[in-house]
Design a protein around this nucleic acid. Structure first.
Length: 440
RNA sequence: CGGAGUGUAGCGCAGUCUGGUAGCGCAUCUGCUUUGGGAGCAGAGGGUCGCGGGUUCAAAUCCUGCCACUCCGACCA
């Protein structure tokens, strides 16, 4: 992408409404724009990040055996009356009437709808297990939206729903998501720790929150230090190996880890003092097993092997990609701007023409830009007629992991300079070698 | 929903107390000079001062009603 043909409205000053660092930096980097309290437009740079997060979430959901579909944002009130939640949900649910005065709502979650879809088609235990997910916008009319997209009213959520014949099957479905989440957050470049959680209004009795540690996190968390060094399950993980998956979950739940709501001071203090971690964290994922809470009232049943109708056991599993983007910034930034994990960086490399208008610099940049683009590398070519300092500042602000500098001094030696966003190591190398460093 | 604030140019702010025809920095546009970490000079454009009502010869400023947004608290992916 050529910067002069892109839409990147970076701000030098911070809009005053932004208090926390991720909100400030997302506004300054031109990623988002607030349209209303807790409602944001995702500008091109922000959308790039969001899409990268989604792609990784999707890959790991698919790897674990979940299947993607897409449900609508607007739902019928009648559906929610079946589960009893239309009245129970309260003011957080945005209720709407259509032109025929029919009661509708903007979905805050999709248990009812997915259960309705399931029961319409699935009649046999032979079609189980099944895990369906989608990545769709949700609306929860928070009393007090804040922290930018971290706690917005409209937010993107990946929500998966599992269906199994019995509790043992559901437990495996839960475990698979547990492992998929470990892998997902690891690939997103985030250090996440599963913590035992309260099940809240969604209900059920088995639940974990996945918490990313960040000093500015909104909840206080306590855990055993060893979690920080646990190895994340690899790509070769066999999600059909029930005992193997259970083993991973057992390991990741063997030590103490809890948010302040579930905190057990005695259990925490049983840990040797040197191994205690008391920190702040951001919830980026939440998984629940809730049995027949919805399948029972909504009559989601299948014929079992014995020919009898059996109510299916369900679980639901959420990740907020829009929150993940903000959490990544909270966890990784400096005075100059964002430091993206490479996996979700909007661009992989910033090509900085340090003397725009100089024929040799321009020519070298054009060649580099073409070669990198041809390889499928996400490159942002800063071709503005600006001083170098302004280009460095922009590249730092938006957090591009690599900066490839082309200037007259280097070119005189036939070299360009490659630098990481962090660390400060600079390397002079030939343009061909620079291109060779990057893979799509 | 309780408490506290803020609304003046795209962004950050001054002006409001003490009423007199709207200003600064950044950004934008034009020209020239610059160019290895947010350039300099000269010129230009851009505002129903959140919205309505009132007081006054005159309102960004005083009174009043409303709206929006932010922060603290209770609540949450």
């Amino acid at each position: 992408m050529r910067l002069t043909r892109y839409f990147l409205p970076v701000l030098r000053d911070t809009p005053k409404e932004a208090e926390i660092v991720s909100h400030r930096l997302m506004l300054r980097a031109g990623m988002i724009r607030q349209e209303s309290a807790g409602i944001y437009a995702w500008l091109p740079l922000g959308l790039r990040v969001l899409n990268k997060v989604n792609a990784i979430v999707r890959e790991e959901q698919n790897r674990s055996g979940a299947i993607e579909l897409l449900m609508p944002t607007i739902q019928s009130a009648d559906l929610w009356r079946e589960s009893g939640r239309y009245d129970a949900y309260g003011k957080e649910m945005l209720r709407i009437k259509d032109r025929h005065e029919r009661e509708m709502l903007f979905g805050p979650t999709n248990e009812e709808m997915i259960t309705e879809i399931f029961r319409a088609y699935v009649k046999s235990y032979k079609d189980l297990p099944l895990n369906l997910y989608h990545i769709q916008w949700k609306f929860r009319d928070e009393v007090r939206p804040r922290f930018g997209v971290m706690r917005s009213r409209e937010f993107l959520m990946k929500d998966a729903y599992s269906f199994d014949l019995d509790q043992a099957g559901a437990r495996h479905a839960y475990n698979k998501m547990f492992v998929a989440y470990l892998r997902t957050f690891d690939r997103l470049g985030l250090k996440s720790i599963p913590m035992r959680a309260d099940t809240g209004p969604i209900g059920g009795n088995l639940s974990h929150e996945f918490i990313v540690l960040a000093s500015t996190g909104e909840s206080e968390v306590f855990c055993h230090k060893d979690y920080l060094d646990f190895a994340v399950p690899g790509v070769d993980t066999d999600f059909d190996n029930i005992a193997g998956i259970q083993g991973i979950v057992d390991k990741w739940t063997s030590l103490y880890a809890a948010t302040s709501e579930m905190h057990d001071v005695a259990a925490y203090e049983a840990i040797p003092a040197a191994s205690r971690v008391s920190a702040r964290g951001i919830e980026v994922g939440h998984i629940f097993y809730f049995g027949t809470k919805y399948s029972d009232p909504m009559m989601a049943v299948v014929n079992g092997p014995d020919g009898k109708e059996t109510t299916v056991h369900m679980g639901s599993y959420g990740i907020g990609p829009s929150r993940v983007a903000a959490a990544a910034i909270e966890a990784s930034h400096d005075d100059a701007g964002i430091i993206w994990p490479e996996a979700i960086a909007p661009f992989k490399v910033a090509l900085l023409n340090l003397r725009q208008g100089d024929s040799s610099c321009d020519a070298a940049c054009e060649t580099l830009y073409r070669q990198l683009t041809a390889k499928g590398v996400d490159v942002l070519y800063d071709d503005r007629e600006d001083r170098p300092g302004a280009k460095f500042a922009t590249a730092d602000l938006i957090g591009v992991p690599w900066q490839l500098m082309v200037g007259p001094k280097g070119l005189a030696e036939g070299k360009v300079e490659l630098k990481r966003r962090v660390g400060g190591d600079r390397e002079l190398l030939s343009p061909g070698d620079a291109v060779a460093r990057f893979t799509a």
